[in-house]
Design a protein around this nucleic acid. Sequence first.
DNA 1: AATGAATGAGGCTTCATTCAT
DNA 2: CATGAATGAAGCCTCATTCAT
Lengths: 220, 220, 220, 220
Amino acid sequence: MKIKTKKENRREQIIKAAEEVFSKKDFLNSTISDVAKQAGVSDATIYEYFTSKEELLFSIPRENIENSKNILEDHLVYIKGASNKLRGIIYHLLSYYQENSDFAAISLMILKTNRKFMETEIYNYLREYYQIIIKTIEEGIESGEFKKDISPHFVRSVILGTIEFIVVRWLMKGAPADKTKPVESVDALFDLIVDGIKLENNLRDFKCRIILEPQDAPGK
Amino acid sequence: MKIKTKKENRREQIIKAAEEVFSKKDFLNSTISDVAKQAGVSDATIYEYFTSKEELLFSIPRENIENSKNILEDHLVYIKGASNKLRGIIYHLLSYYQENSDFAAISLMILKTNRKFMETEIYNYLREYYQIIIKTIEEGIESGEFKKDISPHFVRSVILGTIEFIVVRWLMKGAPADKTKPVESVDALFDLIVDGIKLENNLRDFKCRIILEPQDAPGK
Amino acid sequence: MKIKTKKENRREQIIKAAEEVFSKKDFLNSTISDVAKQAGVSDATIYEYFTSKEELLFSIPRENIENSKNILEDHLVYIKGASNKLRGIIYHLLSYYQENSDFAAISLMILKTNRKFMETEIYNYLREYYQIIIKTIEEGIESGEFKKDISPHFVRSVILGTIEFIVVRWLMKGAPADKTKPVESVDALFDLIVDGIKLENNLRDFKCRIILEPQDAPGK
Amino acid sequence: MKIKTKKENRREQIIKAAEEVFSKKDFLNSTISDVAKQAGVSDATIYEYFTSKEELLFSIPRENIENSKNILEDHLVYIKGASNKLRGIIYHLLSYYQENSDFAAISLMILKTNRKFMETEIYNYLREYYQIIIKTIEEGIESGEFKKDISPHFVRSVILGTIEFIVVRWLMKGAPADKTKPVESVDALFDLIVDGIKLENNLRDFKCRIILEPQDAPGK
DNA sequence: AATGAATGAGGCTTCATTCAT
DNA sequence: CATGAATGAAGCCTCATTCAT
């Protein structure tokens, strides 16, 4: 592991503080002063490391995304089959947000709707990250696990949309103290994505009618 | 139809202006002056109709929700079967956001993460509105259209999560000018929810094993 | 008694309302709206009767002063002797403030320190009113009841100063609900003004020394 | 003497400016901008030292009260006898207001009728200060200088009421330019308090009649 | 005579940012 | 490196006052 310089440490200390502060209030309701206080430095010091409040905000996700990506890739090599991998991905995303609720709040409640952030290099990095979902679904299509006519891109939207919806709800009411954790939804989501909600339709559609005809008496 | 007083008209005019302004910038980056200018009144006039900037914000969704609810209910009476209704609901939600993109932006990018709004009466009204999804799914379970072991509440999260995800993406890049409209996702979402992504799952899962046992000779 | 026109009644109704409102908050913290609400008229109506908020304020004392003056004069004719009259005056001033605490608040806490009010005709009328104290003291000096070397003007300051101090204290803490009423101070004030606080001063100051010299015998 | 930090100096500079500004207009008619201009700093700077306009107002009296108290105590140790001390107190109060007319204006015309100020710690300190009057009168009663049946608390009201009345009058007309200074009233007030206004009554009540009879001529 | 409706003017307060030390 | 100190710019909100009806 790379040894960090003092400067880098101070930088991360400020980012950490910003993460905590921005996640509690909004971004616009948080002040540089709040962050400085939380970091134990002066307001001015923050400007030694970041040119503006916004740059500080945009600096928060990078490390988290890298971290999340590393963990996920670590796990996926252990898993075989697109379907199994997909469950692993869903589990990881829910779990990472759950365990890093400050990052989740900033990511889902601040950055997600920030147009400037979308033009950032970090945002591209995030998109790249989510390619892993698309890749997995494509893999499943090729292997015959998944239907041919589904759009991997769209399925990714369903997965991310649902996960984000669940996590935001959780954050909005007393997370992380809340008892019902996001991770608990992993199988509900996975099953629905894979199987849908329709009742075993074949059984209904293809009623089995077996007609037994009396056999002629053999000795006829 | 009820005739609106001058005062009500002016009120709606301001709400409309606020809707346009807040949806372009954030709430916090929008100013009362911006809204006043857009509405063609003075700053002070806004305070004749709303006690604070926040109250103005919270006043935006009411009419939209009522409107959306009315339209949806109108349509649903024409549709039979939980599955068909579900598609109608998905279609309507995507379509209403698409046709009212300012409201969509405010609803999904501002109010959704506003804790104070969640304590509002209007928010309760919204939750009530979404009960219709849950009711429909329950109906489908009872009628045998949907599986017994799914959670209607969770399915609602998938539907709303996906829809909101799609709409936010659309809003974030030049909507409503964007060529790919949210509504186009209606069948992808409906099919996925209903059928899942797994290939012909029933045919694989329920292998048919027919055992014919020799009948005892009748004349035994 | 003069019959009041509708207009005059409305005017007085507004003044009464203003008295109540201004006495509760300050003048500057009270709004025309508050007064209008209290009076049961619209804001605009107030401007039909008064050209400005300040004119409304300055209109409050007139009637009170006239009223107070009339009552006092009524009583004084029944009293003989400067000293007795003085006690009557003190009693009346304390009592009038006590019974008209809204007027007291406006008079002592708003108008007293308002430079513009001092240039008002009404203020002159008030000064004139207080001449009665000075007159009474002069009368006492002439009659030999009071010392020759006291300044009537100054004694008036002591009387008014003390009364106003007591009334303001009373107003500042929950008057008129407060149990200790201003009027209860009447004799303490009167006695102090008349007698001072020094113990039996004359008996100590004027020691009597009588020297008798023996007379020469006449028949010497 | 304690060396003041830069910050303390700046604080005092602002308080001084506020004292000058608030004493000229009212509190509510004075603006933070006025104070800032007078202090030679920006509006925002004031908020680095005081959390609100009101806190700034309430910060004005503290130093003055401390100062006034110190001076008075300094002098009182040189004076013997309750009566003499009382005169010293009256002299000092008149004199301190006279020499610090801005403070006098704020104290007597703004704070005196401010209910919130009455709940302040500083206000309690002020009440404590005025205990010295009560103590002195009690001392006089015990020593036999003053009557037994007077209320020290009430006498304090007469003294403060008169002083405040006189000072306010002085402030209301062109103080401190005015030629008649508050201090000039010291003996009038002292004498009245001590002796009252009644003509030396003993001399009237006990008329001395000395009759000299002509002596018979010795050589008759 | 009364008022509903509108607003210009202005004040308090906040905060990101700068810079000399 | 770090920061204490200062501020320009800006926003929300209030309210006395006006005027057409």
